[in-house]
């Protein structure tokens, strides 16, 4: 006898969510290692630093796979909310990013902005758009 649809969906979503959480923690840990590790082992071991950066990239690919699985496990509305938020975040990243490039090339930007500001901005925009989406379909 097949499992009820709700049980199948719930198990799949729970498994995908758990996987995403695990890969997110792993990616965050490798990112911290790559960022702050050189402060501990210094410039004497550049190979170690390279290994940490490569490890972060490899785990990042795993995170991307986990995120796509998470997206597929969501129900229709939840997937729409996340996809809408992703679209807005991507658009904001493109518009603000290229806007900054143009403004900087024209000498209009008086301060130097860290490159990390762009993914940080996209993350904040995604979170805001996600929350707004959840409220909209409440």
């Amino acid at each position: 006898m097949d499992a009820p649809q709700d049980a199948v969906s719930y198990r799949a979503e729970t498994r995908a969510t758990g996987g995403l959480v695990a890969w997110t923690l792993a990616w965050t840990a490798t990112l911290a290692l790559a960022r702050f590790g050189p402060g501990f082992w210094g410039d004497l071991h550049p190979v170690v630093t390279w290994a940490a950066v490569v490890a972060n990239l490899v785990v990042g690919v795993g995170w991307i796979v986990a995120f796509t699985r998470f997206l597929r496990a969501l129900d229709d509305l939840q997937r729409k909310i996340v996809q809408d938020a992703l679209a807005i975040a991507l658009g904001a990243g493109w518009v603000v990013g290229f806007g900054y490039v143009v403004a900087d090339a024209a000498g209009l930007v008086p301060v130097e902005v860290e490159v990390a500001a762009l993914p940080a901005l996209m993350g904040v925009v995604f979170l805001a758009a996600f929350v707004i989406g959840k409220i909209r379909y409440r």
């Binding site: 649809q5 969906s9 719930y10 129900d75 229709d76 509305l77």
Partner: peptide
């Protein structure tokens, strides 16, 4: 629950 989606849906 019967259909396998969220209540919000």
């Amino acid at each position: 629950q019967r259909v396998g989606v969220s209540r919000q849906t």
